[in-house]
Protein backbone atom coordinates (compact mmCIF):
# COMPACT_ATOMS: atom_id res chain seq x y z
CA UNK A 1 0.00 0.00 0.00
CA UNK A 2 1.26 3.50 -0.77
CA UNK A 3 1.98 5.99 1.97
CA UNK A 4 -0.90 8.14 0.71
CA UNK A 5 -3.33 5.23 0.99
CA UNK A 6 -2.10 4.42 4.49
CA UNK A 7 -2.61 8.04 5.52
CA UNK A 8 -6.14 8.08 4.11
CA UNK A 9 -6.89 4.96 6.13
CA UNK A 10 -5.80 6.76 9.27
CA UNK A 11 -2.47 4.98 9.86
CA UNK A 12 -0.84 7.27 12.41
CA UNK A 13 2.72 6.15 11.76
CA UNK A 14 2.26 6.79 8.03
CA UNK A 15 0.82 10.22 8.81
CA UNK A 16 3.81 11.03 11.02
CA UNK A 17 6.21 10.00 8.24
CA UNK A 18 4.26 11.99 5.66
CA UNK A 19 4.43 15.07 7.86
CA UNK A 20 8.21 14.66 8.08
CA UNK A 21 8.46 14.48 4.27
CA UNK A 22 6.52 17.72 3.76
CA UNK A 23 8.30 19.44 6.60
CA UNK A 24 11.69 18.55 5.13
CA UNK A 25 10.66 19.55 1.61
CA UNK A 26 11.60 16.01 0.59
CA UNK A 27 11.36 15.28 -3.16
CA UNK A 28 8.83 12.54 -2.32
CA UNK A 29 6.48 15.08 -0.72
CA UNK A 30 5.04 16.44 -3.98
CA UNK A 31 4.01 12.97 -5.16
CA UNK A 32 2.56 12.16 -1.75
CA UNK A 33 0.45 15.34 -1.72
CA UNK A 34 -0.78 14.68 -5.24
CA UNK A 35 -1.66 11.09 -4.29
CA UNK A 36 -3.35 11.87 -1.06
CA UNK A 37 -6.11 13.79 -2.80
CA UNK A 38 -7.44 17.31 -2.85
CA UNK A 39 -10.68 17.22 -0.92
CA UNK A 40 -10.63 19.92 1.71
CA UNK A 41 -13.18 18.79 4.23
CA UNK A 42 -11.80 19.79 7.59
CA UNK A 43 -12.50 23.11 9.23
CA UNK A 44 -9.03 24.66 9.56
CA UNK A 45 -8.82 26.91 12.55
CA UNK A 46 -5.86 29.15 13.25
CA UNK A 47 -5.09 30.05 16.86
CA UNK A 48 -2.78 33.00 17.20
CA UNK A 49 -1.86 35.71 19.69
CA UNK A 50 1.00 36.93 21.86
CA UNK A 51 3.18 34.57 23.93
CA UNK A 52 1.62 33.59 27.23
CA UNK A 53 -1.97 34.33 26.24
CA UNK A 54 -2.86 30.67 26.76
CA UNK A 55 -3.09 29.43 23.18
CA UNK A 56 -1.95 25.86 23.93
CA UNK A 57 -4.21 25.54 26.96
CA UNK A 58 -7.16 26.79 24.93
CA UNK A 59 -6.36 24.35 22.10
CA UNK A 60 -6.30 21.55 24.65
CA UNK A 61 -9.63 22.61 26.18
CA UNK A 62 -11.31 22.92 22.76
CA UNK A 63 -9.93 19.52 21.76
CA UNK A 64 -11.49 17.93 24.84
CA UNK A 65 -14.91 19.31 23.89
CA UNK A 66 -14.71 18.11 20.30
CA UNK A 67 -13.62 14.69 21.52
CA UNK A 68 -16.79 14.66 23.60
CA UNK A 69 -18.67 14.88 20.28
CA UNK A 70 -16.53 12.03 18.98
CA UNK A 71 -14.78 14.22 16.43
CA UNK A 72 -11.11 13.59 15.63
CA UNK A 73 -8.90 16.60 16.18
CA UNK A 74 -5.59 17.35 14.47
CA UNK A 75 -3.24 19.91 16.00
CA UNK A 76 -0.22 21.57 14.39
CA UNK A 77 1.73 23.59 16.94
CA UNK A 78 4.46 25.88 15.65
CA UNK A 79 7.32 27.19 17.78
CA UNK A 80 10.21 29.40 16.68
CA UNK A 81 13.54 28.11 15.38
CA UNK A 82 16.63 29.97 16.50
CA UNK A 83 17.91 32.02 13.57
CA UNK A 84 21.43 31.39 14.86
CA UNK A 85 21.63 27.66 15.52
CA UNK A 86 18.49 26.39 13.76
CA UNK A 87 17.56 24.66 17.01
CA UNK A 88 14.11 24.89 18.56
CA UNK A 89 12.41 24.08 21.84
CA UNK A 90 8.91 22.79 21.06
CA UNK A 91 6.97 22.80 24.30
CA UNK A 92 3.29 22.97 23.36
CA UNK A 93 2.66 19.30 24.15
CA UNK A 94 3.21 20.01 27.85
CA UNK A 95 -0.20 21.74 27.90
CA UNK A 96 -1.90 18.99 25.91
CA UNK A 97 -0.91 15.90 27.90
CA UNK A 98 -4.50 14.96 28.73
CA UNK A 99 -4.90 13.84 25.11
CA UNK A 100 -1.94 11.49 25.23
CA UNK A 101 -2.90 8.02 24.06
CA UNK A 102 -6.19 9.19 22.53
CA UNK A 103 -6.38 7.79 18.98
CA UNK A 104 -8.77 10.59 18.06
CA UNK A 105 -6.15 13.29 18.60
CA UNK A 106 -2.98 13.82 16.60
CA UNK A 107 -0.54 16.52 17.70
CA UNK A 108 2.51 17.51 15.72
CA UNK A 109 5.03 20.17 16.76
CA UNK A 110 6.70 22.12 13.97
CA UNK A 111 9.68 24.44 14.18
CA UNK A 112 9.29 27.59 12.09
CA UNK A 113 12.63 26.88 10.33
CA UNK A 114 13.05 30.47 9.21
CA UNK A 115 9.52 31.03 7.88
CA UNK A 116 7.94 34.37 8.74
CA UNK A 117 4.54 35.10 10.19
CA UNK A 118 4.68 32.66 13.08
CA UNK A 119 4.22 29.63 10.87
CA UNK A 120 6.25 26.97 9.08
CA UNK A 121 6.57 26.85 5.29
CA UNK A 122 5.13 23.34 5.39
CA UNK A 123 1.97 24.36 7.21
CA UNK A 124 -0.41 24.19 4.22
CA UNK A 125 0.81 20.74 3.26
CA UNK A 126 0.83 19.48 6.84
CA UNK A 127 -2.78 20.62 7.27
CA UNK A 128 -3.68 18.81 4.02
CA UNK A 129 -2.27 15.54 5.37
CA UNK A 130 -4.18 15.80 8.66
CA UNK A 131 -7.29 16.61 6.64
CA UNK A 132 -6.74 13.57 4.39
CA UNK A 133 -6.28 11.35 7.46
CA UNK A 134 -9.77 12.34 8.57
CA UNK A 135 -9.08 14.89 11.27
CA UNK A 136 -11.70 17.62 11.49
CA UNK A 137 -11.18 20.21 12.79
CA UNK A 138 -7.49 20.86 12.17
CA UNK A 139 -6.11 23.43 14.59
CA UNK A 140 -3.00 25.42 13.73
CA UNK A 141 -1.38 27.11 16.70
CA UNK A 142 1.15 29.76 15.69
CA UNK A 143 4.30 30.96 17.36
CA UNK A 144 3.50 33.63 19.93
CA UNK A 145 3.20 36.69 17.74
CA UNK A 146 3.12 40.44 18.22
CA UNK A 147 2.09 42.96 15.64
CA UNK A 148 1.20 42.33 12.07
CA UNK A 149 2.03 38.64 11.75
CA UNK A 150 -1.15 37.68 10.00
CA UNK A 151 0.02 34.86 7.74
CA UNK A 152 -2.30 32.55 9.63
CA UNK A 153 -5.27 34.16 7.85
CA UNK A 154 -4.01 32.73 4.59
CA UNK A 155 -3.85 29.21 5.99
CA UNK A 156 -6.96 29.01 8.15
CA UNK A 157 -10.67 29.03 7.33
CA UNK A 158 -11.19 30.76 10.64
CA UNK A 159 -8.65 32.79 12.60
CA UNK A 160 -8.98 33.03 16.36
CA UNK A 161 -6.87 35.73 18.02
CA UNK A 162 -6.26 34.99 21.69
CA UNK A 163 -5.33 37.80 24.06
CA UNK A 164 -4.93 37.99 27.83
CA UNK A 165 -5.42 40.86 30.28
CA UNK A 166 -2.44 42.71 31.64
CA UNK A 167 -1.02 43.49 28.25
CA UNK A 168 -2.73 46.82 27.59
CA UNK A 169 0.10 48.44 25.71
CA UNK A 170 0.61 45.36 23.64
CA UNK A 171 -3.00 45.46 22.55
CA UNK A 172 -2.67 49.11 21.58
CA UNK A 173 0.03 48.15 19.15
CA UNK A 174 -1.77 45.11 17.88
CA UNK A 175 -5.04 46.71 16.91
CA UNK A 176 -3.81 47.35 13.41
CA UNK A 177 -2.60 43.91 12.47
CA UNK A 178 -3.65 40.99 14.55
CA UNK A 179 -7.01 42.23 15.67
CA UNK A 180 -8.05 42.99 12.11
CA UNK A 181 -7.04 39.47 11.18
CA UNK A 182 -9.45 37.95 13.69
CA UNK A 183 -12.65 36.19 12.72
CA UNK A 184 -13.10 35.62 16.44
CA UNK A 185 -11.45 37.51 19.29
CA UNK A 186 -10.91 35.67 22.54
CA UNK A 187 -9.95 37.27 25.83
CA UNK A 188 -8.49 34.33 27.72
CA UNK A 189 -7.59 34.28 31.41
CA UNK A 190 -10.89 36.10 31.87
CA UNK A 191 -10.79 35.40 35.60
CA UNK A 192 -7.88 37.81 35.90
CA UNK A 193 -8.14 41.47 36.66
CA UNK A 194 -8.37 43.67 33.60
CA UNK A 195 -10.31 41.23 31.43
CA UNK A 196 -13.40 43.40 31.19
CA UNK A 197 -11.30 46.46 30.42
CA UNK A 198 -9.58 44.54 27.63
CA UNK A 199 -12.92 43.47 26.17
CA UNK A 200 -14.09 47.11 26.27
CA UNK A 201 -10.89 48.29 24.58
CA UNK A 202 -11.25 45.70 21.83
CA UNK A 203 -14.88 46.61 21.32
CA UNK A 204 -14.11 50.28 20.88
CA UNK A 205 -11.20 49.48 18.58
CA UNK A 206 -13.50 47.32 16.46
CA UNK A 207 -16.08 50.10 16.24
CA UNK A 208 -13.52 52.41 14.67
CA UNK A 209 -13.15 50.09 11.73
CA UNK A 210 -15.16 50.08 8.57
CA UNK A 211 -15.83 46.36 8.81
CA UNK A 212 -18.23 44.19 10.80
CA UNK A 213 -16.81 43.67 14.28
CA UNK A 214 -15.73 40.10 15.04
CA UNK A 215 -17.39 38.40 17.99
CA UNK A 216 -15.49 38.87 21.25
CA UNK A 217 -15.59 36.00 23.75
CA UNK A 218 -14.17 35.60 27.24
CA UNK A 219 -12.67 32.28 28.24
CA UNK A 220 -10.70 30.78 31.10
CA UNK A 221 -9.04 27.84 29.40
CA UNK A 222 -7.63 26.42 32.64
CA UNK A 223 -11.14 25.88 34.08
CA UNK A 224 -12.97 25.53 30.78
CA UNK A 225 -15.21 28.54 31.41
CA UNK A 226 -16.48 30.02 28.15
CA UNK A 227 -14.72 27.42 26.00
CA UNK A 228 -17.93 25.66 24.98
CA UNK A 229 -19.36 28.95 23.68
CA UNK A 230 -16.22 29.36 21.59
CA UNK A 231 -16.53 25.82 20.28
CA UNK A 232 -20.17 26.38 19.29
CA UNK A 233 -19.31 29.61 17.56
CA UNK A 234 -16.53 27.92 15.59
CA UNK A 235 -18.79 25.01 14.60
CA UNK A 236 -21.50 27.44 13.51
CA UNK A 237 -19.13 28.95 10.97
CA UNK A 238 -19.18 25.77 8.92
CA UNK A 239 -22.99 25.62 9.10
CA UNK A 240 -25.16 27.08 6.35
CA UNK A 241 -25.24 30.63 7.63
CA UNK A 242 -21.50 31.17 7.34
CA UNK A 243 -20.86 28.75 4.50
CA UNK A 244 -20.56 31.55 1.97
CA UNK A 245 -17.81 33.45 3.79
CA UNK A 246 -15.96 30.19 4.37
CA UNK A 247 -16.04 29.44 0.65
CA UNK A 248 -14.71 32.92 -0.09
CA UNK A 249 -11.95 32.36 2.43
CA UNK A 250 -10.99 29.05 0.84
CA UNK A 251 -10.77 30.69 -2.57
CA UNK A 252 -8.52 33.38 -1.11
CA UNK A 253 -6.41 30.71 0.55
CA UNK A 254 -6.00 28.79 -2.71
CA UNK A 255 -4.86 32.00 -4.42
CA UNK A 256 -2.27 32.81 -1.78
CA UNK A 257 -1.03 29.26 -1.61
CA UNK A 258 -0.55 28.81 -5.35
CA UNK A 259 1.14 32.16 -5.69
CA UNK A 260 3.53 31.37 -2.83
CA UNK A 261 4.34 27.91 -4.19
CA UNK A 262 5.01 29.22 -7.71
CA UNK A 263 7.13 32.07 -6.32
CA UNK A 264 9.20 29.61 -4.30
CA UNK A 265 9.70 27.23 -7.22
CA UNK A 266 10.56 30.03 -9.66
CA UNK A 267 12.99 31.67 -7.25
CA UNK A 268 14.69 28.35 -6.68
CA UNK A 269 15.08 27.69 -10.42
CA UNK A 270 16.06 31.26 -11.17
CA UNK A 271 18.88 31.39 -8.66
CA UNK A 272 20.10 27.87 -9.36
CA UNK A 273 20.97 29.06 -12.88
CA UNK A 274 22.52 32.36 -11.79
CA UNK A 275 24.72 31.71 -8.78
CA UNK A 276 27.80 33.00 -10.62
CA UNK A 277 26.09 36.09 -12.00
CA UNK A 278 24.81 36.89 -8.52
CA UNK A 279 28.27 36.53 -7.00
CA UNK A 280 29.77 38.86 -9.63
CA UNK A 281 26.99 41.44 -9.23
CA UNK A 282 27.30 41.35 -5.43
CA UNK A 283 31.05 42.01 -5.66
CA UNK A 284 30.47 44.93 -8.00
CA UNK A 285 27.82 46.44 -5.71
CA UNK A 286 29.91 45.93 -2.57
CA UNK A 287 32.95 47.52 -4.27
CA UNK A 288 30.87 50.50 -5.35
CA UNK A 289 31.40 49.80 -9.07
CA UNK A 290 27.69 49.70 -9.77
CA UNK A 291 24.44 50.53 -8.03
CA UNK A 292 22.08 47.90 -6.66
CA UNK A 293 19.36 49.12 -9.02
CA UNK A 294 21.62 48.71 -12.06
CA UNK A 295 22.73 45.27 -10.89
CA UNK A 296 19.12 44.16 -10.49
CA UNK A 297 18.30 45.42 -13.96
CA UNK A 298 21.20 43.45 -15.42
CA UNK A 299 20.25 40.30 -13.48
CA UNK A 300 16.65 40.45 -14.64
CA UNK A 301 17.57 41.24 -18.25
CA UNK A 302 16.10 38.71 -20.62
CA UNK A 303 13.99 37.13 -17.89
CA UNK A 304 10.34 36.88 -18.85
Amino acid sequence: MTLAAEIRQGDRRALARGLTLVENGDPAAAALLADVGTASRAHRIGITGPPGAGKSTLVSALTALWRGDDRSVGVLAVDPSSPFTGGALLGDRVRMLTHSGDEGVFIRSLASRGALGGLSAAIYDAADLLDAAGFDPVLVETVGVGQGEVEICRVADTTVVVLAPGAGDVVQGMKAGLVEAADVLVVNQADREGADALVAALRSAAELRDAPAPPILETTATTGAGVDELRQLLDARVGDAEGESLRARRLERAHARLRAAVDRARAHRYWAAREDALARAAEAVAAGDTTPAAAVRDLLEGDA
Partner: peptide
Protein backbone atom coordinates in the same frame (compact mmCIF):
# COMPACT_ATOMS: atom_id res chain seq x y z
CA UNK B 1 20.29 20.31 22.68
CA UNK B 2 18.36 23.23 21.21
CA UNK B 3 21.52 25.33 21.28
CA UNK B 4 23.29 22.52 19.44
CA UNK B 5 20.75 22.97 16.62
CA UNK B 6 18.35 20.15 17.52
CA UNK B 7 14.57 20.45 17.40
CA UNK B 8 13.63 19.44 20.92
CA UNK B 9 10.10 18.35 21.74
CA UNK B 10 9.76 18.84 25.46
CA UNK B 11 6.94 16.97 27.15
CA UNK B 12 7.43 17.67 30.83
Amino acid sequence: LRDAGFEVIYTG
